[in-house]
Simulated assay, not measured.
Amino acid sequence: MLWVKALHIIFVTSWFAGLFYLPRLFVNHAMTEDAATRERLQLMERKLLRFMTPLAVLAIGFGLWTWAYYGFYAGAGWRWMHAKLLLVALLVGYHGWCWQLYRDFATGRNRHSHVWFRWFNEFPVLVLFAVVILVVVKPF
Results as ranks from 00 to 15, higher is better:
residue 45 E to A: 07
residue 47 K to P: 00
residue 49 L to T: 01
residue 49 L to W: 00
residue 51 F to Q: 05
residue 52 M to E: 14
residue 52 M to Y: 06
residue 53 T to N: 14
residue 55 L to R: 01
residue 57 V to P: 06
residue 57 V to F: 12
residue 57 V to W: 07
residue 59 A to R: 05
residue 60 I to D: 02
residue 62 F to M: 11
residue 62 F to H: 09
residue 63 G to T: 02
residue 63 G to Q: 04
residue 65 W to P: 00
residue 65 W to N: 05
residue 66 T to H: 09
residue 67 W to H: 15
residue 68 A to E: 12
residue 69 Y to N: 13
residue 70 Y to H: 15
residue 71 G to T: 07
residue 72 F to A: 15
residue 72 F to E: 09
residue 72 F to T: 13
residue 74 A to K: 07
residue 76 A to H: 10
residue 76 A to L: 10
residue 77 G to N: 03
residue 78 W to D: 10
residue 78 W to C: 00
residue 79 R to G: 12
residue 79 R to L: 13
residue 80 W to K: 03
residue 82 H to T: 14
residue 84 K to N: 06
residue 84 K to E: 03
residue 85 L to C: 07
residue 85 L to Q: 07
residue 87 L to E: 02
residue 87 L to G: 02
residue 89 A to Q: 05
residue 90 L to T: 09
residue 91 L to Y: 01
residue 91 L to W: 01
residue 95 H to D: 05
residue 101 L to W: 01
residue 102 Y to V: 00
residue 103 R to K: 10
residue 103 R to A: 09
residue 105 F to Y: 08
residue 105 F to G: 06
residue 106 A to S: 10
residue 106 A to G: 01
residue 107 T to D: 06
residue 107 T to G: 05
residue 107 T to K: 11
residue 109 R to K: 15
residue 110 N to V: 00
residue 110 N to L: 01
residue 110 N to E: 02
residue 111 R to V: 08
residue 112 H to Y: 12
residue 114 H to I: 03
residue 114 H to M: 11
residue 118 R to N: 10
residue 118 R to K: 15
